[in-house]
Nucleic acid binder design. Sequence first.
DNA 1: CGGTATCCTAAAAGATACTG
DNA 2: CAGTATCTTTTAGGATACCG
Lengths: 152, 152
Amino acid sequence: MKGAIDLSGIDPAFHQQVDLLARDMSAHGVRRDEPVRTTFAMLGDRWSTLILLVLGFGTWRHAELRRVLGRLGAEEKISQRVLTLKLRAMERDGYVVRHVVPTVPPRVSYALTDLGAELRDHATGLIGWVNAHQQEIRKARVRFDLAEADAD
Amino acid sequence: MKGAIDLSGIDPAFHQQVDLLARDMSAHGVRRDEPVRTTFAMLGDRWSTLILLVLGFGTWRHAELRRVLGRLGAEEKISQRVLTLKLRAMERDGYVVRHVVPTVPPRVSYALTDLGAELRDHATGLIGWVNAHQQEIRKARVRFDLAEADAD
DNA sequence: CGGTATCCTAAAAGATACTG
DNA sequence: CAGTATCTTTTAGGATACCG
């Protein structure tokens, strides 16, 4: 982690492996619109991971979910439109089920599917890891920002 | 995964737990600019995970890295500017080291730190999981799109 | 070669008003 | 209540030219 980069690793033979690497990565579902990409994009957007975690606690109606997300201190609040958008995307990928009781007005509720619950477990795993290393990350940021300020 | 939502879960007592939940989630580093959020956002953006994976294979110069990313079939190609941006963000958070040999022109290379390597392991774990379930996801999409088309 | 500056486009997200 | 429609703001990302 110091300045210990091994430059000897940079040689022509190494770079001829690039095409192999490329094929390897493509097999990792790295292309646009493939599940891997869209799922990562989902987890990385402003709300979906939060929604995933909250739905992990049970079944919620649309309006309730909106209020809860607003109370997390994480962000301001999610607009009705965006919540609908996110839930629909998660439903489309099979992470969420939408249940409608056709009264007037209809009662609509959302919950995780088994697949969604598994994804949530992976997400919490990663959250746990980042949390465990947050001091390291914060220190790196301070170091970087100081070094940058020094350069001026 | 069927229509098996337990609506009995929706009761007032349940919702009085919301504040507890909120505190719980805040402790999960769910706020803006906190490592958890920024790291997830990073993994979810267009290039960072790809960069993480490629750097997992060794040490790369800036231009080489750019060429490799362009060959992955994943996207078109990354602009010089964006690659610099992404690498800098990853360096700032301590996931990447930048090494400069001050020749003219200087040789600059990038590699993962130990922290970055750990993050890459988590990322590949998640990639593996999604890949293992991609058929499930694709089927859900088809089902959803058909149901939507039916509605018209 | 690596990086920066400038400009531009596309996509995500927010605000608000409206409907069944 | 849930969802849609419309408009505006914000942000990520790309194109290009230039510098040390």
